[in-house]
Design a protein around this nucleic acid. Structure first.
Length: 461
RNA sequence: UCCCGAGUAGAUCAGUCGGUAGAUCAGCGGACUGUUAAUCCGUGUGUCGUAGGUUCGAGUCCUACCUCGGGAGCCA
Protein backbone atom coordinates (compact mmCIF):
# COMPACT_ATOMS: atom_id res chain seq x y z
CA UNK A 1 0.00 0.00 0.00
CA UNK A 2 1.34 3.37 -0.99
CA UNK A 3 0.50 6.71 0.58
CA UNK A 4 -2.74 8.61 0.43
CA UNK A 5 -4.02 9.43 -3.05
CA UNK A 6 -6.40 12.25 -3.96
CA UNK A 7 -9.77 11.02 -5.19
CA UNK A 8 -9.54 12.91 -8.46
CA UNK A 9 -6.26 11.15 -9.23
CA UNK A 10 -7.61 7.77 -8.19
CA UNK A 11 -10.56 8.10 -10.56
CA UNK A 12 -8.52 9.52 -13.42
CA UNK A 13 -5.51 7.24 -13.30
CA UNK A 14 -6.43 4.29 -11.12
CA UNK A 15 -7.02 0.81 -12.57
CA UNK A 16 -9.46 -1.77 -11.26
CA UNK A 17 -7.71 -4.06 -8.81
CA UNK A 18 -5.38 -1.33 -7.56
CA UNK A 19 -4.92 -0.94 -3.79
CA UNK A 20 -5.54 2.61 -2.58
CA UNK A 21 -5.52 4.74 0.54
CA UNK A 22 -8.08 7.58 0.35
CA UNK A 23 -8.86 10.28 2.90
CA UNK A 24 -11.76 12.69 2.91
CA UNK A 25 -15.07 13.73 4.40
CA UNK A 26 -18.36 11.84 4.32
CA UNK A 27 -21.02 13.43 2.10
CA UNK A 28 -23.72 10.79 2.40
CA UNK A 29 -24.30 7.36 3.88
CA UNK A 30 -26.70 4.80 2.38
CA UNK A 31 -26.89 1.72 4.48
CA UNK A 32 -28.73 -1.58 4.27
CA UNK A 33 -28.29 -4.89 6.01
CA UNK A 34 -25.81 -6.35 3.55
CA UNK A 35 -24.13 -3.36 1.99
CA UNK A 36 -23.26 0.24 2.85
CA UNK A 37 -22.39 3.04 0.45
CA UNK A 38 -20.54 6.18 1.53
CA UNK A 39 -19.76 9.08 -0.77
CA UNK A 40 -16.33 10.34 0.24
CA UNK A 41 -15.10 13.75 -0.94
CA UNK A 42 -11.64 15.26 -0.40
CA UNK A 43 -12.20 18.48 -2.35
CA UNK A 44 -10.14 17.36 -5.34
CA UNK A 45 -13.25 16.94 -7.48
CA UNK A 46 -17.01 17.46 -7.39
CA UNK A 47 -18.32 13.92 -7.35
CA UNK A 48 -16.08 12.32 -4.75
CA UNK A 49 -15.94 8.56 -4.82
CA UNK A 50 -18.38 5.86 -3.80
CA UNK A 51 -17.04 3.65 -1.04
CA UNK A 52 -18.67 0.21 -0.81
CA UNK A 53 -18.54 -1.92 2.32
CA UNK A 54 -19.98 -5.34 3.03
CA UNK A 55 -20.34 -7.12 6.37
CA UNK A 56 -16.96 -8.82 5.99
CA UNK A 57 -15.35 -5.41 6.63
CA UNK A 58 -13.92 -5.36 10.17
CA UNK A 59 -16.19 -3.17 12.37
CA UNK A 60 -18.78 -3.05 9.58
CA UNK A 61 -21.48 -2.01 12.06
CA UNK A 62 -19.49 1.09 13.09
CA UNK A 63 -18.78 1.92 9.45
CA UNK A 64 -22.43 1.73 8.44
CA UNK A 65 -23.38 4.23 11.15
CA UNK A 66 -20.72 6.86 10.50
CA UNK A 67 -22.12 10.41 10.45
CA UNK A 68 -22.31 12.81 7.54
CA UNK A 69 -19.37 15.19 7.77
CA UNK A 70 -16.97 12.72 9.41
CA UNK A 71 -13.36 12.56 8.26
CA UNK A 72 -12.42 9.05 7.14
CA UNK A 73 -9.39 7.18 5.88
CA UNK A 74 -10.29 4.27 3.63
CA UNK A 75 -8.01 1.54 2.39
CA UNK A 76 -9.33 -0.73 -0.27
CA UNK A 77 -9.35 -1.90 -3.83
CA UNK A 78 -10.52 0.13 -6.82
CA UNK A 79 -13.17 -1.71 -8.81
CA UNK A 80 -15.58 -1.19 -11.64
CA UNK A 81 -18.96 -0.17 -10.28
CA UNK A 82 -21.93 -2.35 -11.23
CA UNK A 83 -24.30 0.50 -10.36
CA UNK A 84 -25.20 3.41 -12.57
CA UNK A 85 -23.78 6.84 -11.83
CA UNK A 86 -20.10 6.05 -11.55
CA UNK A 87 -17.56 4.01 -13.45
CA UNK A 88 -15.25 3.26 -10.55
CA UNK A 89 -15.69 2.81 -6.82
CA UNK A 90 -13.57 1.62 -3.94
CA UNK A 91 -14.32 -1.56 -2.02
CA UNK A 92 -13.36 -0.88 1.58
CA UNK A 93 -10.92 -3.31 3.14
CA UNK A 94 -10.24 -1.20 6.21
CA UNK A 95 -11.12 2.21 7.56
CA UNK A 96 -10.26 4.70 10.27
CA UNK A 97 -12.56 7.40 11.60
CA UNK A 98 -10.06 10.25 11.66
CA UNK A 99 -12.51 12.82 12.98
CA UNK A 100 -16.07 11.88 13.86
CA UNK A 101 -19.08 14.12 13.19
CA UNK A 102 -22.28 13.62 15.14
CA UNK A 103 -25.87 14.37 14.16
CA UNK A 104 -25.51 18.05 15.07
CA UNK A 105 -23.39 18.61 11.92
CA UNK A 106 -25.22 21.54 10.31
CA UNK A 107 -24.93 20.43 6.69
CA UNK A 108 -27.60 18.05 5.55
CA UNK A 109 -27.58 15.84 2.52
CA UNK A 110 -30.37 17.86 1.02
CA UNK A 111 -30.11 21.21 -0.69
CA UNK A 112 -29.66 24.28 1.50
CA UNK A 113 -30.38 27.90 0.65
CA UNK A 114 -27.33 30.07 -0.13
CA UNK A 115 -28.51 32.47 2.60
CA UNK A 116 -28.29 29.74 5.21
CA UNK A 117 -24.95 28.51 3.92
CA UNK A 118 -23.52 32.02 4.29
CA UNK A 119 -24.16 31.76 8.01
CA UNK A 120 -21.93 28.66 8.08
CA UNK A 121 -19.27 29.89 5.66
CA UNK A 122 -16.69 27.73 7.43
CA UNK A 123 -18.61 24.57 6.54
CA UNK A 124 -20.27 25.47 3.26
CA UNK A 125 -16.90 24.79 1.62
CA UNK A 126 -17.79 21.12 1.95
CA UNK A 127 -20.89 21.47 -0.22
CA UNK A 128 -21.09 20.71 -3.93
CA UNK A 129 -21.72 24.29 -5.01
CA UNK A 130 -18.98 25.91 -2.96
CA UNK A 131 -16.54 23.14 -3.75
CA UNK A 132 -17.12 23.85 -7.42
CA UNK A 133 -16.93 27.64 -6.98
CA UNK A 134 -13.66 27.65 -5.10
CA UNK A 135 -11.98 25.00 -7.22
CA UNK A 136 -12.86 27.11 -10.24
CA UNK A 137 -11.73 30.31 -8.52
CA UNK A 138 -8.33 28.80 -7.79
CA UNK A 139 -7.88 27.40 -11.29
CA UNK A 140 -9.01 30.67 -12.86
CA UNK A 141 -6.54 32.73 -10.81
CA UNK A 142 -3.71 30.52 -12.03
CA UNK A 143 -4.93 30.86 -15.61
CA UNK A 144 -4.93 34.65 -15.29
CA UNK A 145 -1.25 34.50 -14.41
CA UNK A 146 -0.52 32.10 -17.27
CA UNK A 147 -2.31 34.37 -19.75
CA UNK A 148 -0.20 37.39 -18.86
CA UNK A 149 3.02 35.44 -18.38
CA UNK A 150 2.74 34.02 -21.90
CA UNK A 151 2.54 37.57 -23.23
CA UNK A 152 5.53 38.81 -21.29
CA UNK A 153 3.58 40.91 -18.80
CA UNK A 154 5.32 41.66 -15.50
CA UNK A 155 3.26 40.94 -12.39
CA UNK A 156 3.32 43.91 -9.99
CA UNK A 157 2.42 43.90 -6.31
CA UNK A 158 1.08 47.39 -5.77
CA UNK A 159 0.72 48.73 -2.22
CA UNK A 160 -2.29 47.81 -0.13
CA UNK A 161 -1.79 50.76 2.20
CA UNK A 162 -1.87 54.04 0.36
CA UNK A 163 -2.03 57.75 1.01
CA UNK A 164 -3.85 58.58 -2.20
CA UNK A 165 -7.53 58.11 -2.86
CA UNK A 166 -7.13 60.34 -5.88
CA UNK A 167 -9.22 58.25 -8.19
CA UNK A 168 -12.16 59.19 -6.05
CA UNK A 169 -13.45 55.67 -6.57
CA UNK A 170 -15.38 54.81 -3.49
CA UNK A 171 -14.78 55.49 0.18
CA UNK A 172 -11.45 54.65 1.72
CA UNK A 173 -10.98 52.41 4.73
CA UNK A 174 -8.78 54.36 7.14
CA UNK A 175 -5.52 52.82 8.33
CA UNK A 176 -4.26 54.36 11.55
CA UNK A 177 -2.53 53.60 14.84
CA UNK A 178 -3.89 56.72 16.53
CA UNK A 179 -5.99 56.38 19.65
CA UNK A 180 -9.57 56.36 18.33
CA UNK A 181 -10.90 57.86 21.56
CA UNK A 182 -8.39 60.69 22.04
CA UNK A 183 -6.57 61.33 18.76
CA UNK A 184 -4.04 64.17 18.63
CA UNK A 185 -5.69 67.31 17.34
CA UNK A 186 -4.49 70.33 15.47
CA UNK A 187 -6.94 73.17 14.93
CA UNK A 188 -9.77 70.85 15.97
CA UNK A 189 -8.96 68.23 13.33
CA UNK A 190 -7.15 64.93 13.70
CA UNK A 191 -3.43 65.51 13.32
CA UNK A 192 -2.33 62.78 10.96
CA UNK A 193 1.22 64.06 11.10
CA UNK A 194 1.26 62.19 14.41
CA UNK A 195 0.03 58.99 12.78
CA UNK A 196 2.16 55.95 11.89
CA UNK A 197 2.88 57.06 8.33
CA UNK A 198 2.90 60.77 9.11
CA UNK A 199 -0.13 61.32 6.89
CA UNK A 200 -3.69 60.09 6.46
CA UNK A 201 -3.62 56.63 4.93
CA UNK A 202 -6.11 54.00 3.89
CA UNK A 203 -6.52 50.71 2.09
CA UNK A 204 -6.11 50.85 -1.66
CA UNK A 205 -9.13 51.32 -3.91
CA UNK A 206 -7.11 50.58 -7.06
CA UNK A 207 -3.56 49.73 -8.02
CA UNK A 208 -3.87 51.51 -11.33
CA UNK A 209 -1.79 54.60 -10.67
CA UNK A 210 1.13 52.54 -9.41
CA UNK A 211 0.54 50.12 -12.27
CA UNK A 212 1.04 52.97 -14.72
CA UNK A 213 4.40 53.73 -13.13
CA UNK A 214 5.48 50.14 -13.73
CA UNK A 215 4.23 50.19 -17.32
CA UNK A 216 6.56 53.14 -17.94
CA UNK A 217 9.48 50.88 -17.12
CA UNK A 218 8.44 47.31 -18.00
CA UNK A 219 6.13 48.08 -20.97
CA UNK A 220 3.47 45.48 -20.16
CA UNK A 221 2.41 44.82 -16.58
CA UNK A 222 -0.57 43.65 -14.58
CA UNK A 223 -1.73 43.74 -11.00
CA UNK A 224 -3.88 41.07 -9.39
CA UNK A 225 -4.64 41.67 -5.76
CA UNK A 226 -7.09 42.72 -3.09
CA UNK A 227 -8.93 46.01 -3.27
CA UNK A 228 -11.04 47.71 -0.63
CA UNK A 229 -14.06 49.97 -0.83
CA UNK A 230 -15.83 51.31 2.24
CA UNK A 231 -19.03 52.12 0.34
CA UNK A 232 -22.18 51.24 2.25
CA UNK A 233 -23.64 49.33 -0.65
CA UNK A 234 -25.77 46.28 -0.02
CA UNK A 235 -26.13 44.53 -3.33
CA UNK A 236 -25.39 41.18 -4.85
CA UNK A 237 -22.49 42.71 -6.79
CA UNK A 238 -20.60 44.65 -4.12
CA UNK A 239 -18.15 43.61 -1.45
CA UNK A 240 -15.91 45.70 0.78
CA UNK A 241 -12.94 43.49 -0.07
CA UNK A 242 -12.51 42.04 -3.53
CA UNK A 243 -9.79 41.14 -6.00
CA UNK A 244 -9.05 43.10 -9.11
CA UNK A 245 -7.00 42.42 -12.23
CA UNK A 246 -5.52 45.51 -13.88
CA UNK A 247 -3.23 45.21 -16.91
CA UNK A 248 -1.42 48.28 -18.22
CA UNK A 249 0.49 48.59 -21.51
CA UNK A 250 2.93 51.28 -22.61
CA UNK A 251 3.09 52.19 -26.31
CA UNK A 252 -0.55 51.14 -26.62
CA UNK A 253 -3.76 52.89 -27.62
CA UNK A 254 -7.43 52.19 -26.95
CA UNK A 255 -7.69 49.71 -29.84
CA UNK A 256 -4.80 47.66 -28.45
CA UNK A 257 -6.46 47.79 -25.04
CA UNK A 258 -9.70 46.40 -26.46
CA UNK A 259 -7.78 43.70 -28.32
CA UNK A 260 -6.15 42.58 -25.08
CA UNK A 261 -9.46 42.62 -23.20
CA UNK A 262 -11.07 40.53 -25.93
CA UNK A 263 -8.29 37.95 -25.94
CA UNK A 264 -8.38 37.84 -22.14
CA UNK A 265 -12.13 37.29 -21.81
CA UNK A 266 -12.15 34.62 -24.51
CA UNK A 267 -9.24 32.85 -22.86
CA UNK A 268 -10.99 32.73 -19.47
CA UNK A 269 -14.17 31.38 -21.08
CA UNK A 270 -12.29 28.72 -23.05
CA UNK A 271 -10.34 27.75 -19.95
CA UNK A 272 -13.28 27.06 -17.65
CA UNK A 273 -15.07 25.11 -20.38
CA UNK A 274 -12.05 22.91 -21.07
CA UNK A 275 -10.34 22.62 -17.70
CA UNK A 276 -13.20 22.91 -15.19
CA UNK A 277 -15.63 20.74 -17.12
CA UNK A 278 -17.05 18.75 -14.21
CA UNK A 279 -17.72 21.86 -12.13
CA UNK A 280 -19.09 23.75 -15.15
CA UNK A 281 -21.51 20.93 -15.88
CA UNK A 282 -22.66 21.16 -12.29
CA UNK A 283 -23.29 24.91 -12.62
CA UNK A 284 -25.08 24.32 -15.89
CA UNK A 285 -27.35 21.75 -14.29
CA UNK A 286 -27.94 23.30 -10.87
CA UNK A 287 -27.43 27.06 -11.22
CA UNK A 288 -28.05 28.29 -14.76
CA UNK A 289 -29.10 26.01 -17.59
CA UNK A 290 -27.93 28.40 -20.29
CA UNK A 291 -24.50 28.94 -18.76
CA UNK A 292 -22.35 26.73 -20.95
CA UNK A 293 -24.06 27.83 -24.15
CA UNK A 294 -23.51 31.47 -23.17
CA UNK A 295 -19.85 31.03 -22.22
CA UNK A 296 -19.23 28.95 -25.34
CA UNK A 297 -20.72 31.75 -27.46
CA UNK A 298 -18.46 34.37 -25.88
CA UNK A 299 -15.39 32.15 -26.28
CA UNK A 300 -16.05 31.93 -30.02
CA UNK A 301 -17.42 35.40 -30.63
CA UNK A 302 -15.92 38.23 -32.59
CA UNK A 303 -16.37 41.09 -30.13
CA UNK A 304 -18.12 44.07 -31.72
CA UNK A 305 -16.92 47.66 -31.30
CA UNK A 306 -19.32 50.59 -31.16
CA UNK A 307 -18.83 54.29 -30.48
CA UNK A 308 -20.69 55.70 -27.49
CA UNK A 309 -22.32 58.20 -29.84
CA UNK A 310 -23.66 55.38 -32.00
CA UNK A 311 -24.81 53.48 -28.92
CA UNK A 312 -26.90 56.48 -27.86
CA UNK A 313 -28.44 56.70 -31.35
CA UNK A 314 -29.27 52.99 -31.31
CA UNK A 315 -30.87 53.28 -27.87
CA UNK A 316 -32.92 56.27 -28.95
CA UNK A 317 -34.26 54.29 -31.89
CA UNK A 318 -34.97 51.24 -29.73
CA UNK A 319 -38.60 50.08 -29.83
CA UNK A 320 -38.65 49.70 -26.06
CA UNK A 321 -39.13 52.15 -23.22
CA UNK A 322 -36.30 52.42 -20.73
CA UNK A 323 -36.69 53.36 -17.11
CA UNK A 324 -33.78 55.80 -17.31
CA UNK A 325 -33.35 58.55 -19.92
CA UNK A 326 -31.12 58.14 -22.96
CA UNK A 327 -29.27 61.31 -23.90
CA UNK A 328 -25.80 62.07 -25.22
CA UNK A 329 -23.77 63.01 -22.16
CA UNK A 330 -25.51 60.67 -19.75
CA UNK A 331 -23.98 57.44 -18.52
CA UNK A 332 -25.40 54.14 -19.72
CA UNK A 333 -27.55 52.34 -17.18
CA UNK A 334 -27.52 48.60 -16.74
CA UNK A 335 -30.75 48.27 -18.77
CA UNK A 336 -29.15 50.19 -21.66
CA UNK A 337 -26.01 48.08 -21.56
CA UNK A 338 -27.97 44.87 -21.64
CA UNK A 339 -30.12 46.05 -24.52
CA UNK A 340 -27.01 46.89 -26.54
CA UNK A 341 -25.24 43.59 -25.96
CA UNK A 342 -28.31 41.36 -26.02
CA UNK A 343 -30.61 42.96 -28.61
CA UNK A 344 -28.52 45.23 -30.82
CA UNK A 345 -25.34 43.16 -31.09
CA UNK A 346 -26.34 39.75 -29.79
CA UNK A 347 -22.95 39.19 -28.23
CA UNK A 348 -20.03 40.95 -26.52
CA UNK A 349 -19.50 44.57 -27.53
CA UNK A 350 -17.03 47.30 -26.63
CA UNK A 351 -18.51 50.77 -26.23
CA UNK A 352 -15.79 53.30 -27.04
CA UNK A 353 -15.12 57.01 -26.46
CA UNK A 354 -17.45 58.30 -23.75
CA UNK A 355 -18.24 61.92 -22.90
CA UNK A 356 -15.40 63.30 -20.81
CA UNK A 357 -17.73 64.59 -18.11
CA UNK A 358 -18.79 61.13 -16.96
CA UNK A 359 -15.33 59.56 -16.88
CA UNK A 360 -12.23 59.77 -14.67
CA UNK A 361 -9.59 62.49 -14.92
CA UNK A 362 -6.80 60.19 -16.13
CA UNK A 363 -8.57 59.13 -19.34
CA UNK A 364 -7.12 60.51 -22.56
CA UNK A 365 -8.83 63.51 -24.10
CA UNK A 366 -9.84 62.88 -27.73
CA UNK A 367 -9.28 65.41 -30.50
CA UNK A 368 -13.00 66.20 -30.70
CA UNK A 369 -12.72 67.91 -27.32
CA UNK A 370 -15.88 66.19 -26.11
CA UNK A 371 -14.93 62.59 -25.49
CA UNK A 372 -12.23 60.57 -23.79
CA UNK A 373 -10.65 57.28 -24.93
CA UNK A 374 -12.62 55.09 -22.54
CA UNK A 375 -14.04 51.64 -23.20
CA UNK A 376 -16.51 49.34 -21.49
CA UNK A 377 -16.90 45.71 -22.48
CA UNK A 378 -20.55 44.64 -22.30
CA UNK A 379 -21.60 40.99 -22.28
CA UNK A 380 -25.05 39.38 -22.39
CA UNK A 381 -26.82 38.86 -19.08
CA UNK A 382 -24.70 41.20 -16.92
CA UNK A 383 -23.79 44.26 -18.96
CA UNK A 384 -20.44 45.85 -18.13
CA UNK A 385 -17.74 43.40 -17.12
CA UNK A 386 -14.53 45.27 -18.05
CA UNK A 387 -13.82 48.99 -17.94
CA UNK A 388 -10.68 50.56 -19.31
CA UNK A 389 -9.14 53.47 -21.12
CA UNK A 390 -6.17 54.96 -22.85
CA UNK A 391 -4.50 57.21 -20.28
CA UNK A 392 -3.75 60.89 -20.69
CA UNK A 393 -0.02 61.00 -21.40
CA UNK A 394 0.28 64.78 -22.08
CA UNK A 395 1.49 66.61 -18.98
CA UNK A 396 -0.33 69.87 -19.63
CA UNK A 397 -3.65 68.23 -20.49
CA UNK A 398 -3.46 65.90 -17.50
CA UNK A 399 -2.58 68.69 -15.08
CA UNK A 400 -5.51 70.75 -16.31
CA UNK A 401 -7.87 67.78 -15.96
CA UNK A 402 -6.73 67.22 -12.39
CA UNK A 403 -7.35 70.81 -11.47
CA UNK A 404 -10.80 70.65 -13.04
CA UNK A 405 -11.52 67.54 -10.99
CA UNK A 406 -10.44 69.19 -7.75
CA UNK A 407 -7.29 67.09 -7.38
CA UNK A 408 -4.14 68.87 -6.29
CA UNK A 409 -1.49 68.02 -8.91
CA UNK A 410 1.21 68.42 -6.27
CA UNK A 411 -0.19 65.47 -4.31
CA UNK A 412 0.41 63.22 -7.33
CA UNK A 413 3.78 64.64 -8.33
CA UNK A 414 5.20 61.17 -8.88
CA UNK A 415 2.34 60.24 -11.22
CA UNK A 416 2.89 63.43 -13.20
CA UNK A 417 6.64 62.79 -13.36
CA UNK A 418 6.02 59.84 -15.70
CA UNK A 419 4.48 62.37 -18.11
CA UNK A 420 7.43 64.67 -17.62
CA UNK A 421 10.16 62.28 -18.78
CA UNK A 422 9.69 59.61 -21.41
CA UNK A 423 5.91 59.73 -21.46
CA UNK A 424 4.23 57.21 -23.76
CA UNK A 425 0.72 56.56 -24.98
CA UNK A 426 -0.51 53.82 -22.69
CA UNK A 427 -3.71 52.01 -21.85
CA UNK A 428 -5.17 49.47 -19.48
CA UNK A 429 -8.33 48.05 -18.01
CA UNK A 430 -9.75 46.66 -14.80
CA UNK A 431 -11.69 43.48 -14.19
CA UNK A 432 -13.24 42.58 -10.86
CA UNK A 433 -12.16 38.99 -10.32
CA UNK A 434 -15.33 38.04 -8.44
CA UNK A 435 -17.50 39.50 -11.18
CA UNK A 436 -15.64 37.36 -13.69
CA UNK A 437 -16.26 34.31 -11.51
CA UNK A 438 -19.94 35.21 -11.21
CA UNK A 439 -20.18 35.52 -14.97
CA UNK A 440 -18.37 32.24 -15.61
CA UNK A 441 -20.29 30.19 -13.03
CA UNK A 442 -23.76 31.74 -13.17
CA UNK A 443 -23.62 32.46 -9.43
CA UNK A 444 -25.72 35.55 -8.78
CA UNK A 445 -24.36 36.86 -5.49
CA UNK A 446 -20.80 38.04 -4.95
CA UNK A 447 -20.98 36.76 -1.38
CA UNK A 448 -21.11 33.26 -2.82
CA UNK A 449 -17.92 33.49 -4.87
CA UNK A 450 -15.70 34.95 -2.11
CA UNK A 451 -14.58 32.48 0.57
CA UNK A 452 -15.37 34.76 3.51
CA UNK A 453 -17.09 37.86 2.14
CA UNK A 454 -16.71 41.26 3.76
CA UNK A 455 -19.81 43.41 3.36
CA UNK A 456 -21.40 46.08 5.57
CA UNK A 457 -21.84 44.60 9.08
CA UNK A 458 -20.07 41.37 8.07
CA UNK A 459 -16.44 40.56 8.80
CA UNK A 460 -17.00 37.18 10.42
CA UNK A 461 -14.83 34.11 9.90
C1' U B 1 -28.04 55.21 1.93
C1' C B 2 -33.24 54.82 -0.36
C1' C B 3 -37.58 51.60 -1.85
C1' C B 4 -39.96 46.79 -1.34
C1' G B 5 -40.37 42.00 0.99
C1' A B 6 -39.33 38.57 4.87
C1' G B 7 -38.22 36.78 10.07
C1' U B 8 -42.69 30.51 12.98
C1' A B 9 -39.16 23.31 14.70
C1' G B 10 -32.13 21.72 12.99
C1' A B 11 -33.45 23.24 7.42
C1' U B 12 -37.39 24.96 3.85
C1' C B 13 -42.02 26.85 4.59
C1' A B 14 -47.78 26.92 5.63
C1' G B 15 -50.73 29.13 9.40
C1' U B 16 -57.87 31.28 6.93
C1' C B 17 -62.00 36.05 10.06
C1' G B 18 -57.70 37.63 16.13
C1' G B 19 -59.53 32.01 19.58
C1' U B 20 -53.86 29.27 22.16
C1' A B 21 -48.78 25.63 16.59
C1' G B 22 -48.65 22.53 11.42
C1' A B 23 -46.36 20.16 6.76
C1' U B 24 -42.17 18.45 4.24
C1' C B 25 -37.11 17.38 4.57
C1' A B 26 -33.10 16.44 7.94
C1' G B 27 -32.18 13.79 12.67
C1' C B 28 -33.20 9.49 15.75
C1' G B 29 -35.13 4.02 16.23
C1' G B 30 -36.30 -0.20 13.17
C1' A B 31 -36.52 -3.01 8.31
C1' C B 32 -34.06 -4.03 3.77
C1' U B 33 -28.14 -7.81 -0.37
C1' G B 34 -26.07 -2.65 -5.13
C1' U B 35 -27.70 2.26 -3.37
C1' U B 36 -27.21 7.28 -6.15
C1' A B 37 -30.55 13.65 -2.19
C1' A B 38 -31.81 5.20 -1.61
C1' U B 39 -36.55 3.16 -0.16
C1' C B 40 -40.31 1.51 3.57
C1' C B 41 -42.31 1.71 8.85
C1' G B 42 -42.13 4.43 13.43
C1' U B 43 -40.75 8.98 16.19
C1' G B 44 -39.74 14.07 18.36
C1' U B 45 -39.05 19.08 18.05
C1' G B 46 -41.09 25.81 19.23
C1' U B 47 -38.73 32.51 23.82
C1' C B 48 -43.62 32.49 16.53
C1' G B 49 -36.81 38.34 15.44
C1' U B 50 -36.85 42.12 19.90
C1' A B 51 -39.55 45.76 22.82
C1' G B 52 -43.94 48.19 23.52
C1' G B 53 -49.31 48.91 22.34
C1' U B 54 -54.70 47.56 21.07
C1' U B 55 -57.85 43.43 22.84
C1' C B 56 -61.38 39.17 27.25
C1' G B 57 -57.69 36.90 24.03
C1' A B 58 -52.15 38.45 19.29
C1' G B 59 -47.94 34.06 15.23
C1' U B 60 -52.08 37.06 13.12
C1' C B 61 -53.70 44.08 14.11
C1' C B 62 -50.62 48.90 15.34
C1' U B 63 -45.67 51.44 16.52
C1' A B 64 -40.46 51.40 17.00
C1' C B 65 -36.06 48.84 16.54
C1' C B 66 -32.85 44.67 14.88
C1' U B 67 -31.49 41.20 11.18
C1' C B 68 -31.73 38.99 6.42
C1' G B 69 -33.10 39.02 1.21
C1' G B 70 -34.47 41.54 -3.52
C1' G B 71 -34.27 46.11 -6.27
C1' A B 72 -32.02 51.13 -6.86
C1' G B 73 -27.92 54.37 -6.42
C1' C B 74 -22.57 53.87 -6.50
C1' C B 75 -19.29 50.88 -8.73
C1' A B 76 -15.35 46.41 -9.96
Amino acid sequence: MTGRVKIKEALAQGKPGQELLLKGWVRSVRSSKGVTFIVLNDGSNLSGIQVVAEPDLPDYEEFSRVGTGSALAISGVLQESPGAGQALEIKAGGFEIVGAADESYPMQKKRHSFEYLRTIAHLRLRSNTFGAVFRLRSALAQEVHRFFAERGFVYVHTPIITANDCEGAGELFRVTTLDPVRPPLVNGCVDYAEDFFGSATGLTVSGQLEGELFAQAFSDIYTFGPTFRAENSNTARHAAEFWMIEPEMAFADLAADADLAEAFMKRLCRFVLDDCAEDMNFFNTQIDQELIARIEAVANAEFARMEYTEAIERLKKAPVTFQFPVEWGLDLQSEHERYLTEQVVGGPVFILNYPKEIKAFYMRQNDDGKTVAAMDLLVPKVGEIIGGSQREERLDVLTAKMEQSGIDPASLWWYLDTRRWGSTPHAGFGLGFERAIMYLTGMENIRDVIPFPRTPRHAEF
